[in-house]
Amino acid sequence: MVSFSEIVEEARLSARALLDYGESFFNPTIRLGVTGLSRAGKTVFITALIHGLIRGGRMPVFEALSSGRIARAFLAPQPDDGVPRFAYESHVRALVAERRWPSSTVDISELRLVIEFQRGKGAERTLTLDIVDYPGEWLLDLPLLNKSYEQWARESLALSRSEPRSHLAGAWHAHLATLSAEGREDEPATLESARLFTDYLRACRDDRFAMSLLPPGRFLMPGNLAGSPALTFAPLDVPADGRAPDGSLWAMMARRYESYKDIVVRPFFRDHFARLDRQIVL
């Protein structure tokens, strides 16, 4: 059954989409999301794309540019006051002048590019392109919105017990064996579980293994939420259709899992992902 809060959320998304559509009707704007897991090359790709459009680079596959229909492209002020600007100039300097790779994507950022072009019949038009860069790990969190803590915990544990992940999860599994899900809530035990679970996720991401991760993606990129209860939980051995006793370690983990969805996942979906018109995944 759909809850009242879900109905309100859907209404907010619909109103936001209608507002964005009304604005783009008179001033065409495309929000392009660019994402991928860590070290996929997002920053270099975006920097090279913008650099090529601004400077008229060689892009033979991009017909609008190769045929000369794009008159010019230039950067415009950052449109969203609450989102950091993509550091294009710093990244160009790192690649061209300093001959080094720019810093990896650890948070969301955005850059506005205005493109003046000619349509097929020669009419001049302007297209505003908002490029949104964000870590692909955040994308992995979206399925959590439709999963309970119990479902997520069982899926995460099942995957961690299969090769080649099982030997990477040894320390976490050893600690997990000392816990009773129905025992009293325990802050030190929860902190240790979250630390060992995060170490396991980090080991999976290591270059030697380079395995895709299960959520929560923000555990490896906590930002200003580092150490907060919303990022301090881990899977427990619990039945997928069970119910946590009040005051138990299980209930504590489940409550923090739901807080993670409310504080991290839903705002990302509502304020950023749901507003994208196109998506590039590297």
Rank of each mutant, 00 (worst) to 15 (best):
R208L: 05
W250H: 14
A234K: 01
F219C: 07
M253S: 08
G227E: 08
R205D: 10
E192V: 12
D206K: 11
E192G: 00
P235V: 06
R208I: 01
P239S: 06
A240G: 05
R205A: 15
R205S: 14
S259E: 08
L196A: 09
G247Y: 13
R195N: 05
P245G: 11
R218P: 03
F197Q: 01
A210R: 14
Y200V: 00
P235N: 09
A203T: 05
R256T: 09
T232Y: 02
M211W: 04
A230L: 06
S193P: 03
R208D: 13
D206H: 15
G227T: 04
L236S: 09
L213K: 12
G223M: 06
N224F: 03
M252F: 02
W250D: 04
P239D: 10
G217N: 13
M221P: 00
A244C: 08
L201V: 05
A244P: 09
S259W: 02
P245I: 14
R205G: 13
D207T: 11
R256H: 14
L225H: 10
T232P: 04
F219E: 02
R208H: 13
P245F: 12
E192W: 08
A244S: 13
M221K: 15
V238Q: 08
A210P: 11
S228R: 08
G227C: 02
C204N: 07
D207L: 13
F197V: 01
L231W: 07
L196K: 12
F219W: 04
R202M: 03
